[in-house]
Simulated assay, not measured.
Amino acid sequence: MHPFDWQRLLLDEVPLGFLGEVAMRTLLAYIVVFLFLKLAGRRGVRQLSLFELVVILTLGSAAGDMTFYEDVPLLPVLTVFVAMGILYRATTALMATSPRLQDWIEGSPFTLIRDGVFELDTLNQGNISQDEFLMELRLRGVEHLGQVRLAIVEINGDVSLYYYAAEQTRKGLSVLPVAHRPVYQQVPRPGDYACNHCGRVQHMASVQQIACPACKAQQWSTALMTLRQA
């Protein structure tokens, strides 16, 4: 083998004319995947559930093999798409008649914030990273949990937020990164502090070090009371 053999690097033993066939295969794969998404009735990736994402990844693998492997015939790959489409339709029909099956396959929405604090059961199950969710809140213009009445994580990973009215805003845990909100184990002065784990707000009358009554965590941040900007 010779280094920097451009024939080997670019085409190997494949003739130059095969590039036209690759273009045709790619166009066919593009059309088939596009038609499948249209038949599935989805407008974007954010609307895909975990079940549908697995289907798309499986089809993407088959389509990728079809585009540039000369020893992969087209009809077997197209059969994969047809069979997967039939299985997809059958599975969605079964899910429509069986809520338990739908929950098992796609999961169900879960509540992450209620009344300005994290739901401990959800946090303990590890369904979502707290840091990842705090980033999601920052992107939505939320400054602290006291501005949020209810937060629901949907089955496609999107987050539905329901806010308190300005006059109902309560004190809450800052959603800013730790670099922008000092974290204390022993609070430096009396005041209201929010548990860094669950968001529960606790008034501390003196300089002290206590565990959160709700989750037993021992790290605190100064509770905020700023109003959400419309």
Rank of each mutant, 00 (worst) to 15 (best):
A40L: 10
Y184T: 13
Q218H: 10
T92K: 12
Q202C: 11
P188A: 14
F118R: 10
L35G: 02
D103C: 15
A214V: 11
W220P: 03
C195K: 01
L75M: 08
Y163G: 05
A63Q: 10
P73M: 04
V159S: 04
E119A: 01
R25M: 00
L16M: 07
R200D: 00
I155A: 07
M84S: 13
M1F: 08
M84P: 04
M135C: 07
L9T: 06
I105D: 08
T97F: 04
V207P: 10
A230W: 12
Q229S: 10
P213L: 09
A93S: 05
V77S: 00
V33E: 01
I86K: 10
S49N: 14
T58R: 02
L145I: 05
R170Y: 03
G60P: 08
A63H: 02
V72C: 05
R42Q: 07
M204V: 06
V72T: 07
Q168L: 06
A211V: 05
H2Y: 04
G199E: 00
S49L: 11
K38S: 11
F51G: 06
P109W: 00
L176T: 02
H203Q: 03
V82A: 13
T111W: 00
G17F: 12
D71A: 05
I155S: 09
V201W: 01
R138I: 09
I113A: 01
Q168N: 06
H197S: 15
G191N: 01
I210E: 06
A96G: 06
F81P: 01
A214G: 10
Y88V: 07
T122P: 15
D5N: 10
G191H: 02
I56G: 08
Y162T: 02
G107S: 06
L101K: 07
